[in-house]
Design a binder for these strands. Structure first.
Lengths: 348, 348
DNA sequence: CTGTTAGCGCTTTCAG
DNA sequence: CTGAAAGCGCTAACAG
């Protein structure tokens, strides 16, 4: 029914091995023979059987990219960059690699499930993007799984995610702490002393690091933090809206709101406006990431730019073995403070 | 080295066949036996070999989701919804399905390549999202490939994409034409007579349909279109910015700008502001899709809401055979006009 | 440069 | 309910 490599071989009057060789292009074959095989492939409309090929070769062309939220451009941009470096020729069997992105939704279970699925497929590489969930049990399970996959020959690269202990996985991490600190210091230098902070979900490393950077800045300037000034939420617009109303309720005298990321900042701006407050005249707002829309908000958003595409591309190349990993297997990538219209001196 | 099903069988003192049966759960096995096998699996830390399994069974748990631009929330939202319906239990071998998204970048070649890759993997289903490229050659190639995949047992579902002729693929299409028409009619009723239109790439169905709807509205109101009023670009912010400047250059008397989608509208707003024009006092702006950020722009964006998540979820269920396809295999999903602050009566 | 020969690890009749 | 045996379609030594 379905045409196999043997059919092609018969038609081209060569052995199956030869067909395999021209298809994989990793072995010398006479030009005329290749020609004949290729023609047969074409005439028969033959498609290589991936599973059979992977089984025999004990590797596959699958590359998995795990993201926390595929609907968030933060991940989309990284994933896109990674894929662009992986998609090209270079895999086995005809060249192309199948770079696929898996959406964990931020759930540790789904993350592990996807890894298992990828492990089953004998994936060539796996890239994990964005913050990790901080939970001892989960971290242990992840480390064990990653180690096992690495042993089985799967390359593991962490992209925009902190290094995983007990795993010799390559990590290109963002300096969230440093970026957050810079951002808050900028606000403090403008004269702000009462700053609200909208943090992400408590369990994420990204959340903790950014919050730590924020607090380090406060401390450096001798500002004592009021517990009412911090609210936790999710990394989305809606959460930013609600958290801002909550902050305002707790302390209407805040002069600045620092958001966990740009989407949250967007919601914060909306909440402030709906509360009759002007930005930045009454309250300054700052985000994080510098997503594409951030320059277009009104006023445009002060934020920390993360080189998402660059890091994604680099991670992709490292995963493909086309670029040297950073020394020690770990690199910290800094963000860049982008001062824009949403931040100004405090009112009064 | 790597533990196989045979190892598990030995340890559990049963035959490989039995292990396979408990793993796939599609065959009666005594509870006590199952227990023993599961324990062995656990103790040995056994992971099913996907390729081997797929080869023997002639199917796989892979489900592919093709998107034009993974960095665009339009696709991210659909992909996320699709995955949430597919990820769950229900696949072979332990339950989970591997739902993966493939980024074509809008390139016909990459689209075809991904399909071939998915075809090789004997994917269980493939979902194609967003507009299709209108090119006779490509359309033919696509149709042929889709047909072949369908014959091989792969379910094909088009999500937010017009039906593919000569393919009995299920299609859940968006009524882009109707939505665009409504939108432009809204503007016309506000009094606008000179409307610029920023279209997407010419080759996409989405672009053509939206433009047709826009023109139908103009015609219905007896407005003769000036060729200078239409500019083509890409579906992103940058393109919207540049196209708007171009429109303004061509005809400074425009009172409204209709954008191909919300991202483009965002760029249009920025360009208008940078040109010293107020929205909507001097120029009204409208987008399409109603992405999450659109309600937060200033002024908030008048647009057409597309039920991306709902359609994605439905497509996912249909692909999994958990929901009946629409009658005739084709459904047209309407958008909803969202009138917001960016549209008002023309100046003067 | 090309053919032959064994499997890769799992599923699935077919018997019991 | 369980076991034995025969492949699934391809790759990779190993010889020529």
């Amino acid at each position: 029914m379905t045409v196999t490599l043997a059919d092609v071989a018969a038609r081209a009057q060569v052995s199956p091995a030869t067909v395999s060789r021209v298809l994989n292009g990793n072995y010398p074959v006479a030009a005329s023979t290749r020609e004949r095989v290729l023609r047969a492939v074409d005439e028969l409309d033959y498609v290589l059987n991936g599973p059979a090929s992977s089984l025999a070769a004990a590797t596959s062309d699958l590359v998995g990219i795990l993201v926390n939220d595929i609907a968030d451009p933060f991940f989309g941009i990284m994933a896109s960059a990674i894929q662009s470096e992986i998609g090209g020729p270079g895999g086995r069997a005809g060249g192309e690699r199948l770079a696929v992105v898996c959406n964990t939704g931020g759930s540790p279970e789904r993350e592990l499930t996807y890894l298992t699925l990828l492990q089953r497929q004998r994936a060539a590489a796996v890239l994990l993007t964005g913050g990790a969930v901080e939970d001892a049990t989960h971290a242990t399970a992840m480390a064990a799984k990653l180690r096992k996959m690495a042993e089985a020959g799967t390359r593991i690269v962490l992209c925009g995610r902190p290094p995983a202990p007990d795993t010799q996985a390559i990590a290109l991490a963002f300096d969230n702490r440093g970026g957050a600190r810079q951002l808050t210091e900028h606000l403090i230098r403008l004269g702000h002393r009462r700053l609200g902070y909208i943090a992400g979900p408590v369990e994420l490393t990204t959340t903790r690091h950014r919050l730590e950077g924020h607090r380090a800045a406060l401390e450096a300037y001798g500002i004592k933090e009021d517990p009412r000034w911090t609210v936790h939420g999710r990394y989305d617009r809606r959460s930013g809206y609600e958290a801002t109303l909550e902050l305002l309720r707790r302390d209407p005298s805040l002069t600045a709101v620092v958001a966990a990321n740009d989407s949250v900042a967007l919601g914060a701006c909306a909440a402030l406006r709906d509360s009759g407050l002007r930005i930045p005249d009454d309250v300054s707002v700052a985000g994080f990431d510098d997503l594409p829309f951030s320059v277009d908000t009104v006023p445009s958003l002060t934020t920390v730019r993360l080189p998402l595409a660059e890091v994604g591309a680099r991670a992709g190349r490292i995963a493909m073995g086309r670029e040297e990993p950073p020394p020690g297997g770990i690199a910290s990538v800094r963000g860049e403070l982008m001062v824009r219209g949403s931040s100004g001196g405090p009112r009064g």
